[in-house]
């Protein structure tokens, strides 16, 4: 299973790689990282249908996570990737907007990795 993580904090990469150490080693999961919405779109253009799950931060400079979500859901119709939004603000407004735009799930920072793992496993 391929997962694309989008966040402007670069250290998210070592963190995810260690948190999912076992899963990566088993070949259960494979992670790709993008540090902005623009970068994520570029990746998706080159590797269509590869990423099954996209985890994206909302507050990023430039293209925000919500804009990225909107683009992904509009462009990639079949099969649409599963998009989970992450934000530091667990507020109603962002939640509603993300849901309206077609987000499949919603996580708040700080990310509870046990919960995230559970959620990913149910996707299988």
């Amino acid at each position: 299973m391929k997962i694309l993580v989008v966040d402007d904090e670069k250290d998210i990469q070592p963190l995810f790689e260690q948190r999912f150490r076992r899963e990566i080693r088993n070949g259960e999961m494979k992670f790709e990282f993008a540090y902005s919405g623009e970068e994520a779109l570029k990746y998706l253009n080159g590797n269509q249908h590869e990423a099954v799950l996209i985890l994206s931060d909302i507050n990023m400079p430039g293209m925000t996570g919500l804009e990225l979500l909107d683009r992904i859901k509009k462009i990639y119709n079949e099969p649409p990737p599963f998009v989970m939004m992450i934000t530091a603000y667990g507020d109603e407004e962002n939640y509603k907007r993300a849901m309206e735009l077609g987000a499949d799930d919603f996580l708040t920072k700080p990310v509870d990795f046990t919960e995230l793992k559970e959620k990913i496993k149910t996707l299988h």
Partner: peptide
């Protein structure tokens, strides 16, 4: 408060994950 939350999350996460790593 928000700006400080991000680095603190990392501090927490990296130390938690390190505890697991020591066990491994």
């Amino acid at each position: 408060a928000h700006e400080i939350q991000n680095p603190l999350n990392f501090v927490n996460n990296f130390s938690e994950v390190s505890v697991d790593l020591i066990n491994e």
